[in-house]
């Protein structure tokens, strides 16, 4: 049984259908990347899986349970977290307060969970009392991912985690994503930096116009001539 199974999903904004019947799955502990041109429906899929958009057809299963139409705060409790592409931190809160907000629904002592995130991102420990609004894009991305990881999710959804980051930071973020996977969390990424993302991915999907055009292991997609020519910039 896959960890996440998306079956024939149709979804979009109001009357505009963006996804015309998409099916994907994510297994435990793997990194899966969705690539494709702008407007292909990559982010729409993440929002639909996380309950921010209601699909008009199809179903979403998480750990075998039908979660279609559940609100985000219920999905978080089941062990799936989502990091939006922009505005994904609370700028006037400190690093530690941002992380604590990730565990808001847990109520109990967060010390052990904070410790785990700090081990994953040591730079955040040094800056835990600093306001996130004053930090760089790469550090904010770590705060955003750390906040999601406080819940100890089994699946993390990342919407373009390297968008608008300097190239050296992009590499840093991809390294963090691998470390997160190695700690036992499955990750579904939507990414513009397609080549680098596929290099660390177990599997990948290529979306075009709201349809699933190609799928395969990260290596297969990188080696595929047509995918390379059309979507990886030659």
């Amino acid at each position: 049984m896959p960890l996440l199974e998306v079956r024939d999903i149709r979804s979009g904004y109001g009357d505009m259908e963006v996804l015309h019947g998409i099916s994907i799955h994510v297994d435990s502990g793997e990194i899966v990347t969705i690539i494709g041109p702008n407007g292909a429906g990559k982010s729409t899929l993440l929002k639909t899986v996380f309950g921010l958009l209601k699909p008009t057809a199809g179903r979403v299963f998480f750990q075998g349970q039908d979660i279609t139409g559940l609100p985000p705060h219920r999905i978080v409790q089941l062990g799936m977290c989502y990091v939006p592409q922009v505005d994904n931190v609370f700028p006037s809160l400190t690093v530690q307060e941002n992380l604590e907000m990730g565990g808001f629904i847990l109520r109990g002592d967060l010390r052990e969970r904070l410790e785990r995130v700090y081990r994953l991102f040591p730079v955040l420990r040094e800056r835990r009392r600093q306001r996130v609004g004053k930090m760089s894009g790469g550090e904010r991305q770590m705060v955003a991912m750390g906040r999601a990881l406080i819940m100890d999710p089994s699946l993390l959804l990342l919407d373009e985690p390297t968008a608008a980051l300097a190239p050296n930071l992009v590499t840093q973020v991809f390294e963090s994503i691998q470390r997160i996977r190695d700690s036992g969390v499955a990750i579904l990424i939507v990414e513009q930096n397609a080549r680098q993302a596929l290099e660390i991915s177990d599997r990948g999907y290529v979306f075009v116009d709201g349809m699933n055009r190609y799928q395969g292991s990260g290596r297969e997609l990188l080696a595929d001539e047509e995918v390379g020519r059309l979507f990886l910039g030659g």
Partner: peptide, 9 residues
């Protein structure tokens, strides 16, 4: 919006 996505009641 982020507060809601984060699971804050």
């Amino acid at each position: 919006e982020l507060a809601q996505v984060t699971g804050i009641d």
